[in-house]
Amino acid sequence: MNHSVSKHTLFTYLAGQATPIERQTVEEWLKNPANTPTFHEWLLEWEMRSLQFVPDQEAAFEKMVQRLDQTEKPEADEEPMPVRKPLFFWGGWKPYLVAATVLLALLIPLRNKLFYQTHYTTYGETKTLRLEDGTGVVLKSNSSLQVPRFGFYTNIREVLLTGEGRFSVTHQPDHQRFVVKTSDQFQIEVLGTEFTVYARKQSTNVALGRGKIRVDYSRGADKHHLTMKPGDLLTLSQQGNLHLRQLPTVPPAEARSKTGLTFKETSVWEVCYLLREKFGLKVEIVDDSLAQRTISGNYHADNADELLDVLIETLEIKTEKTGTGLLLKNN
């Protein structure tokens, strides 16, 4: 198919300056639908060359974005070809939008139940869970863990934690990432490793046993991330201050009597973490305020019981025996 019309002739015609012969030729050419795409392409070029006015494109775009955000989810299945409709046909789809919004609002409370399974522990209770992928979670007292019912086989495994949990993540052959979220602003991402997360109102602590983890957090609108090494302790205070340091070093059993343990504003939570991880003593804190208290100084402790005694004396707290271990409580 050849074009009987040149771009130049079309431009003359569009400007209203074509001779009757040219005009007739162009009109014949336009009547062939196969020429429409070319016509529109040239029409665009012509408009670009002779703009009637320059609209404030940025302002218009801002307005458009606002409008789109208000009615986010686009509705599909409409006629793809432009048809002659009145300029504003709100009435046509607005009822559906309202219906959809109402339905959505009704479904939101149910959504979490449908898509997530939530494990809870009560005060003083500890649960050992094994997730579908083999990851082991020890859910500590008064905590909850939300695990997706479906979608654990997508590219990330994501769980939501409130309270405290010790994770031992299995490395998947396809390097599927495992993400522990504690809030919208804070998440820990791993491939395979062992770590403990403490996410309560007062603070969020992350202690890494082995492997490597990545922590993503946002401060205001800024997004940050950092990588933790084994033995690191990350603390996020309620005020949003982030603090990364090494956990107090626990010397090997044979050297303990000589060197002792040095604490420097070490939180009770940390000491308990060390008792569990290094001394194998099952000890839990039930009071959040107690977990925040700190101790300082150099202590000699050959074994777990001696360290525990030091803790009880220094802080004037009491212990309570449970089926699985010990509970630390404020006096």
Binding site: T36, P37, T71, P74, A76, E78, P80, M81, P82
Partner: peptide, 21 residues
């Protein structure tokens, strides 16, 4: 154009669609 996801269904060029509309 965006709301009806016309961009999925347009067989001509986008500009042709937009000019027609």
């Amino acid at each position: 154009f965006y709301r009806t996801e016309a961009y999925r269904k347009v067989h001509s060029s986008f500009i042709s669609y937009l000019f027609t509309a």
